[in-house]
């Protein structure tokens, strides 16, 4: 690696001390080629930040949020079936294609942290709108709470969440992986039978139609 490139990098990366920086800047004034190299490196840094910057503003998948807050429970249960799962347990299911794939965590009975993409989708997204999370059916249960079915590709999870005290709470969840191919987002159904069974148990009356769903969302699910 040339000294010259090293010095350009160190300048652009803010690694020079005051004296060296001033000397470099004096050199740059006298040498337009050097100034052009600095400009090219600055532009590269900018393009990289712009390409990867938006990731930090994305909503975080639920499973990552849960991994950070629950992994210290030594007796973290890992159970394969849902029938036996009591409220507030975090459960692992077999994961996908990453060779060392961790088990996606699923929480039943927990309030969804508002920053998760699942909570955001439940708040805002209408049925059949595309996204990493898809919303299926919306209805009110016997207590008058709004409930919505969801499928989350990032969490590899499908389930039912109901709204109470201003937060979404997952009442049923099951492992779910999007069908191969680009079509699953537009497919009308795909809701697992366990979730549909939970809907049948909770449903009071009719499911909301598109305009009722939109009105409920616009009213903040109150």
């Amino acid at each position: 690696m040339t000294d010259r490139l090293d010095r350009v990098m160190a300048y652009v990366d803010g690694e020079l001390d005051d004296g060296a920086r001033r000397a470099f800047e004096a050199e740059m004034t006298a040498d337009p080629t050097l100034a052009a190299e600095v400009a090219a490196h600055r532009e590269l840094a900018e393009r990289l930040s712009e390409a990867y910057g938006p990731v930090v503003r994305e909503a975080v998948p639920l499973r990552l949020d849960l991994a950070a807050r629950t992994a210290n429970d030594q007796a973290r249960p890992r159970i394969g079936t849902w029938a036996a799962v009591a409220a507030s347990l975090v459960v692992g299911v077999v994961a996908g294609r990453f060779a060392l794939a961790p088990e996606p965590a699923i929480a039943v009975g927990i309030e969804l942290p508002a920053r998760t993409e699942l909570a955001r989708a439940l708040d805002r997204q209408l049925a059949a709108e595309p996204g990493v999370v898809r919303i299926g059916i919306t209805f009110r249960d016997a207590q008058g709470r709004y409930c919505r079915t969801f499928q989350s590709a990032a969490d590899r999870l499908a389930g039912l969440a109901c709204r109470g005290d201003g937060r979404w709470r997952v009442t049923t969840a099951t492992a779910w992986t999007p069908a191969a191919g680009p079509d699953y987002r537009t497919a009308a159904s795909g809701t697992p039978p366990e979730v549909l069974a939970a809907v049948d148990r909770a449903l009071e009356g009719e499911t909301l139609d598109a305009s009722q769903e939109k009105a409920a969302r616009d009213a903040g699910w109150r």
Partner: peptide, 19 residues
Amino acid sequence: VADADDLVQLTVERALVHR
């Protein structure tokens, strides 16, 4: 994206094991 999130989850789990 999915692989990247798997890597994050693995990282978080390892960090907490070795806290």
